[in-house]
Amino acid sequence: MLSEQEQREIAAERAHYEQPQAAAIEALKIVQAHRGWVSDEAVADIAAALDTSTAAIDAVATFYNLIYRQPVGRHVIHVCDSVSCWLMGQPRLLELLRAELGIDLGQTTPDGRFTLLPTVCLGTCDRAPAMLVGRDTHRDLEGVDAQRLATLLAAYE
């Protein structure tokens, strides 16, 4: 079941488009914003809310990078792996993150705090390497060391 809040937000987005299905991506993002990820049930509920089929919504949900169809941690760390960050030492950053969190890409820490994922270019190439933690972009991580990284992550409960 979609919460009333979710339903309201989806209805508002739906009003922005000529056709209901157009709000599919917004609806998925709304649900994800509230729950962290999008479950099978949520996909079906969104389909019902937008007068379309579950398969049609899932076809969309599984296409896009930023829709999580499996549970993720409370904070998702997206490490940019595109060319400018790579040039500026993203491999090292990633290695530090793996060591710090004890997980690999695609995994979630056992305490459910962080999920580590790759992302494509974050559009902040002049201050590479960069990563996104939740909604925050962290830049200039070229010289970062384990301690600074730990401090940085400590801000995320």
């Binding site: 996909v43 089929s53 398969a55 899932d58 076809a59 599984t62 296409f63 896009y64």
Partner: peptide, 16 residues
Amino acid sequence: DLDVFGAHNNVYFGRA
């Protein structure tokens, strides 16, 4: 109830 899921060379044709 049949659609395509996923993207790039990981596209899947089936049901939800």
